[in-house]
């Protein structure tokens, strides 16, 4: 164990990273919800969300992030793939083609007239797949012997 001659003080980086990760997560949610009629969607939202997790992994360490987010990201990716494919097969129950999507307008109490669509579930699955795969790749690369 090599002792450092000086201790590295990164309190500024850690304080900034806590704030910036909140901003990045907000942007990820915005990109995820804006993806129907404007640029964005599940893939980009998942990538931005994964970049927030990567920022936390860089600034803190694997042990702290695993303690704070106790999920297995391989299972997250598998669950997202199941959700995406499940929406595709759900259309077969109603006698439609594979991956047929439906939408309708609802009057929600706070948002007013809102378009709800089953593409949202599909995109949520895509976002979960992207987050799981990216974080798994980053963790597998970074682990040393």
């Amino acid at each position: 164990m090599i002792k450092h001659r000086y201790r590295i003080n990164n309190v500024i980086l850690r304080t900034v990273a806590k704030l910036v990760s909140l901003i990045i997560l907000t942007l990820a949610v915005y990109l995820f919800l804006a993806g129907h009629h404007s640029p964005g969607g599940g893939f980009v939202g998942g990538l931005v969300l994964a970049s927030a997790l990567v920022l936390l992994l860089i600034v803190f360490d694997i042990e702290t992030v695993r303690k704070g987010i106790p999920v297995d990201f391989k299972k997250v990716a598998a669950f997202g793939a199941l959700l995406s494919v499940g929406t595709g097969f759900g259309a077969l129950i109603f006698g439609e083609n594979f991956l047929s999507q439906a939408f309708d307008y609802f009057n929600l109490p706070f948002f007013g007239k809102t378009e709800l669509t089953t593409v949202m579930i599909f995109e949520a699955g895509v976002a979960l797949v992207v987050v799981g795969v990216v974080v798994t790749i980053i963790l597998s690369i970074s682990e040393d012997e």
């Binding site: 201790r7 590295i8 992994l57 860089i58 803190f60 360490d61 694997i62 042990e63 702290t64 980053i138 963790l139 970074s142 682990e143 040393d144």
Partner: peptide, 13 residues
Amino acid sequence: IERGTIIDSRRDD
């Protein structure tokens, strides 16, 4: 540059 590693495995301070 500063540490030689990008992602630490455990907290060392």
